[in-house]
C-alpha cells in the first residue's frame, strides 16, 4: 500500500496535523518509471563500461537517482524511477548507454 492509498483511506480527523507528512521519502511510493518513453540500456554492444567506479558520471548526473551503485563495482538502472531522459546516454564518456524506445 502506498502512502497515498493509506492517506486516501483516512478521514480528516486522522490525517497528521498541519499538513505534514510524518515520515521521510514517501515519494518513493510514486514510481516515475511509468513516465518513460525511452529506456536506457547499458553495455549493449561493443561499448562496454567495465569499471564504473572509475567514472560514475551517469550515476552522479541522473536527476532521479535511478542509477544505483552496487557492490562490487557495478551499476544498476532502477527502472521504477528512471524517466528516460537520456542524460546518462549523452554524458557517458564511453557511450556505453543507449536509449531504446519502450
Amino acid at each position: 500500500m502506498t502512502i497515498q492509498d493509506e492517506y486516501r483511506k483516512k478521514g480528516w480527523k486522522d490525517l497528521p496535523p498541519g499538513g505534514i507528512v510524518d515520515r521521510p521519502a514517501t515519494a518513493r511510493d510514486y514510481k516515475t518509471g511509468t513516465w518513460r518513453a525511452f529506456r536506457p540500456i547499458r553495455n549493449k554492444d561493443k561499448k562496454i563500461c567495465q569499471n564504473p567506479e572509475a567514472c560514475l558520471v551517469c550515476w552522479i548526473l541522473c536527476p532521479d537517482a535511478a542509477i544505483i551503485r552496487v557492490e562490487p563495482n557495478e551499476l544498476e538502472i532502477d527502472l521504477d524511477y528512471c524517466k528516460g531522459c537520456g542524460v546518462c546516454a549523452l554524458e557517458c564518456p564511453l557511450k556505453a548507454i543507449e536509449m531504446e524506445q519502450e
Binding site: 521521510p24 541522473c62 536527476p63 532521479d64 537517482a65
Partner: peptide, 20 residues
C-alpha cells in the same frame, strides 16, 4: 537529501543539484 519518486521534469538537473 532528495529521493527518487520526485516529479521534476524528465531530465531536470534540479534533481541532480539537490542530490549533490
Amino acid at each position: 537529501s532528495v529521493s527518487s519518486g520526485h516529479r521534476l521534469c524528465t531530465g531536470c538537473a534540479a534533481g541532480t543539484i539537490a542530490r549533490l
